[in-house]
């Protein structure tokens, strides 16, 4: 994997996660959560802009060209971030699993010799720690809550789990990722799914689910209809 590929993976994970989270805006279960998810989306968007700007310098493109003018096969994000939000439990499972991956990844990148990448990662890792904390608290609250919330949180974990294998197929080991996730599932009284099941992948090579196409259509339509338009 060369430097540009890594930057595109990092930037696309963050960008698509931000776009998905923003869909909750004004429709979260409570007003405080509206603010929380919008803030997390903003953190992801901030990181995405820095990674994509950096990647674009090698490709002769700016951040907008990378975000708005690439087609689905050119995106390098993991499948997990493009999956639909589902119910609130699914969104929290996605948040927990993604931040449990981004935190050790950014921590490792912060020590790399590429100073610019290291600086962005060192900044973003603090934000990831807060996201992990938020996802953990909700997973515990729902898992160790009512019969209904427990059932839905377990369903969410089971549904998203297969997509976590793609996260740990690269620079973050399964062991490091599980170290962030297993204690949370334990405290939430949730069963940890087995690791020998279906393990979809393809996001890193541009082979995505149909969900990404729909997300991109909404995210890119204005920019493509009115090239060069500014607020």
């Amino acid at each position: 994997m060369n430097g540009v590929d890594r930057l595109l993976r990092l930037g696309d994970d963050a960008l698509i996660a931000a776009q998905r989270l923003a869909e909750w805006h004004a429709s979260s279960p409570e007003m405080e959560e509206d603010v929380a998810l919008a803030n997390i989306a903003l953190d992801q968007l901030g990181a995405a802009r820095l990674f994509l700007t950096y990647a674009g310098e090698s490709l002769g493109k700016d951040e907008d060209a990378l975000a708005y003018l690439r087609d689905d096969r050119e995106f390098r994000n993991c499948l997990l971030v493009e999956l639909p939000n589902g119910d609130f439990a699914v969104t929290m499972a996605k948040l927990l699993f993604l931040s449990a991956y981004q935190l050790p990844l950014y921590t490792a990148l912060a020590a790399r010799p590429d100073e610019r990448l290291a600086a962005i990662a060192a900044k973003a890792r603090k934000e990831s720690a807060y996201h992990l904390d938020h996802g953990s608290q909700w997973t515990i609250r729902l898992g160790d809550g009512t019969e209904e919330s427990h059932r839905r949180m377990q369903d969410a974990v089971d549904q998203i789990w297969p997509y976590t294998h793609e996260l740990t197929a690269g620079e973050v080991s399964r062991t490091d990722w599980l170290a962030n996730v297993e204690p949370v599932l334990d405290e939430a009284t949730l069963a940890r799914p087995a690791d020998d099941g279906w393990a979809p992948d393809g996001g890193r090579s541009g082979v995505h689910t149909e969900h990404l196409s729909c997300l991109l259509a909404e995210m890119q339509v204005v920019h493509r209809a009115y090239p060069g338009a500014r607020w």
């Binding site: 405080e32 959560e33 603010v35 929380a36 919008a38 803030n39 997390i40 903003l42 953190d43 807060y130 904390d133 938020h134 608290q137």
Partner: peptide, 13 residues
Amino acid sequence: QLSRFGSTACKAL
């Protein structure tokens, strides 16, 4: 704490 996030990215409620 009412909310871990607040009116701006740097604040909680």
